[in-house]
Amino acid sequence: MIELKAGAARLGLLPELGGAVTFWKSGEVCVLEAVSDPNLLAQKGHRVAAYPLVPFSNRVADGHFRFDGAEYRMKPNFAGEPHVIHGNAWQHPWELALLADDSATLQLEWHPPYDRPMDEWPFAYRAQIRFDLREESLAVGMVIENIDQRPQPVGLGLHPYFPRRGGVKVGFSADTVWTNDERHLPALRVPATGEWSFEHMRAITDQAIDNCYAGWDGAAFLRWPDDGLALTITASPTFRHLVLFTPPDRNPDRNFVAIEPVSNMNDALNHAGVMDRGITILAPGERLEGHIHFALTAC
């Protein structure tokens, strides 16, 4: 494990476990919640607090999509579902490219095997993620570069888990939200109003939410009033979708709120007709870059 330090702040990184964050602490307070999810098969039961979503966020229905006249199929990587979820970068070891006391850059090169059946992402790419820790903030920069000889469709995202404690409240603004069908895939796009709205901060209690918001304005807010702590999340224009995931049960391994800045809607590779689905087509040598900033304050 790599540990970054900035004053009383600490950040733990596990490059070999999919470029994952294992903790972010401000003094004795855990800003991120370490979670063990047995459905994420490649994490092998390890507890992680955040991990990168490359080269797409959320699901690809049945691991199947068509692009540029060709058909592609990938092997499911999430237990209990026939879909491929969150790309494949979280399934592979990353390398440490740069390291300082308060910053680190991790890198992954993915080359699909050509000597056996394709189980994963069928295009070659290079990804980097940089963490810059300060005493009251964390900055995360993400880049994906197409190192294939063909164009490829890509997205980016980050999957942080936040503690569901201290009377936690969440707030953000978005235009619309996608409802889900029984297979956890996008069904209808509806206005983010009424029960779907977080325009005014709302307490996260026992409700179950697992939906992708579109037209996100790039800012989200968490407050733990019992702890006197607040967190502001801001993201660059690459991230115009936001996934909110709050499990209904409150056992120790699922007592979290996931607020995921992402570039693409769920199952975006199979929704070419949605103009703002968030997929970027990279020609060989082109890059997609995004930045996310987390700022801690008292409340």
Score class of each variant (00 low, 15 high):
168 V>D: 01
53 L>G: 02
53 L>D: 00
71 E>T: 08
167 G>M: 04
162 F>D: 13
193 T>Q: 04
179 T>Y: 10
12 G>H: 08
188 L>G: 09
198 F>H: 09
64 H>E: 14
26 S>E: 08
131 F>Q: 03
160 P>I: 02
98 L>C: 07
191 P>D: 11
54 V>S: 05
212 C>N: 07
254 R>S: 12
278 G>D: 10
9 A>R: 06
39 N>T: 05
145 E>T: 01
67 F>I: 05
30 C>H: 10
22 T>R: 09
148 D>P: 08
292 I>G: 05
144 I>V: 11
262 V>G: 00
199 E>S: 14
77 N>R: 09
244 L>K: 08
16 E>L: 01
213 Y>D: 13
156 L>K: 05
146 N>Y: 08
56 F>Y: 13
7 G>C: 15
70 A>E: 08
75 K>Q: 03
187 A>E: 13
109 E>N: 06
50 A>E: 02
281 I>K: 03
63 G>V: 02
112 P>Y: 00
187 A>Q: 15
253 D>M: 12
212 C>Q: 05
14 L>N: 04
218 G>K: 05
15 P>L: 13
157 G>M: 09
38 P>R: 05
228 G>A: 11
38 P>Q: 04
65 F>K: 00
286 E>M: 05
171 G>Q: 06
206 D>T: 15
179 T>H: 06
214 A>W: 01
6 A>S: 10
20 A>C: 12
297 T>F: 00
18 G>P: 08
22 T>Y: 06
45 G>I: 01
214 A>P: 01
289 E>F: 09
99 L>E: 14
211 N>E: 07
233 I>L: 14
89 A>C: 15
238 T>C: 11
54 V>E: 00
10 R>T: 08
28 E>S: 12
141 G>P: 07
63 G>I: 02
151 P>D: 04
112 P>L: 02
157 G>V: 11
184 H>G: 11
112 P>S: 10
127 A>F: 04
121 W>D: 02
283 A>T: 08
158 L>T: 11
143 V>G: 07
10 R>F: 08
290 G>W: 01
1 M>V: 13
173 S>H: 05
144 I>Q: 00
53 L>R: 00
115 D>M: 00
143 V>T: 14
41 L>D: 13
111 H>W: 01
233 I>N: 01
24 W>I: 08
106 L>F: 10
196 W>N: 11
285 G>R: 06
291 H>F: 02
242 L>Y: 05
74 M>C: 10
47 R>W: 13
96 L>N: 04
179 T>I: 09
43 Q>L: 06
279 I>K: 03
216 W>H: 12
186 P>V: 03
95 E>K: 00
